[in-house]
């Protein structure tokens, strides 16, 4: 039987991605109704299994479940037995044994969702694994771009910052290039992974060059602790070289979108006047997140449609 896991966008087809974006769009009216709930996943239970703290991704998934009438169960490092030395597989198998219908996992190890998908019968949805992928983030980014009229075919999307450690950059690169966009990576050479172009993106050293004529300027969060790891010399220098300010944004296409996966380091990778400016769609990304996750959950649990009628 076909499984509707969502492990990453690398192995998700363009038509599947479009299906998710279309479905998310169709679901948008649910959020504006008096009764923000459809019975679609009534009686299904979804476990959010978070091994890394993340308020927004987790809340977004849980809201998406609630809008679709699925029940949710939260497991996190602080409340589960993971700290007692239980393996990931045992934790997940225990949850499955409770009758869970799908698992949403966030884990610091790249590949943890793939690993779980081999262990579990139920579908596994990746909510971010290590430095590997964060498919629902990329899908909500793409949803937001589409809502703002970005036509992926031929669009230039500049992704700037710590590419090496970014699952958001990887998932966006896979997803966007599948739909025909031109993705440009830019960041300090110490934060660009080897053979980054093999992810389908063009690697550009100069941030001005990356932003020039872009339809979307996507800033990544800089993990400030990377500085102590010696990966960049100072925040001051980083801001100068790679931060998004009004001058740099002016190099992009007129009305180019400014995006950020959050949480932002204001004054580091992005200046407040740009983050809060008219081109910023950062808050809309959050709204799109719930819709996209509803679509992904529906894909995992709603199943195919067998029309009983004519």
């Amino acid at each position: 039987m076909h499984r509707w896991d969502l492990l990453g966008l690398e192995n998700t087809s363009a038509s599947d991605i479009v299906w998710i974006l279309d479905t998310a769009k169709s679901m948008s009216d649910i959020m504006t109704r008096d009764i923000k709930k459809v019975p679609t996943l009534r009686g299904k239970s979804v476990c959010t299994l978070f091994f890394e703290p993340s308020t927004r991704t987790r809340s977004s998934f849980e809201l998406a479940c609630k809008y679709l009438s699925a029940d949710t169960l939260s497991f996190s490092t602080t409340t589960s037995s993971v700290r007692k030395g239980e393996t990931l597989a045992d934790t997940a198998l225990n949850i499955q044994a409770m009758g869970i219908d799908a698992v949403v996992i966030r884990h610091q190890s790249s590949g943890a969702p793939h690993y779980l998908a081999q262990k579990l019968k139920c579908p596994v949805i990746n909510a971010g694994d290590g430095m590997h992928e964060h498919p629902t983030q990329a899908l909500l980014d793409m949803y937001t771009m589409r809502e703002h009229g970005v036509n992926f075919e031929g669009a230039k999307v500049a992704i700037i910052g710590d590419i090496a450690h970014s699952r958001v950059a990887r998932s966006n690169a896979w997803g966007l290039t599948k739909l025909g966009a031109h993705v440009v990576f830019c960041g300090p050479p110490t934060l660009i992974p080897p053979d980054a172009d093999k992810l389908g993106a063009e690697v550009v050293a100069d941030a001005d060059e990356a932003v020039r004529d872009a339809d979307v300027v996507y800033m990544l969060r800089l993990q400030l602790e990377r500085q102590s790891g010696g990966l960049f010399p100072s925040v001051r220098e980083y801001r100068e070289l790679y931060g998004l300010n009004r001058r740099r944004l002016a190099l992009a296409k007129r009305g180019a979108l400014v995006m950020h996966p959050g949480p932002m380091n204001r004054g580091v990778e992005i200046e407040s006047d740009v983050a809060d400016g008219p081109q910023s769609v950062i808050l809309e990304q959050v709204t799109g997140g719930v819709l996209v996750r509803m679509a992904v959950l529906f894909r995992a649990l709603g199943g195919g449609n067998e029309w009983a009628g004519s």
């Binding site: 509707w4 679901m27 195919g304 449609n305």
Partner: peptide, 10 residues
């Protein structure tokens, strides 16, 4: 809605 390889269009 039954589990099938085809996804319904919403």
């Amino acid at each position: 809605l039954a589990l099938k390889a085809e996804q319904p269009v919403v």
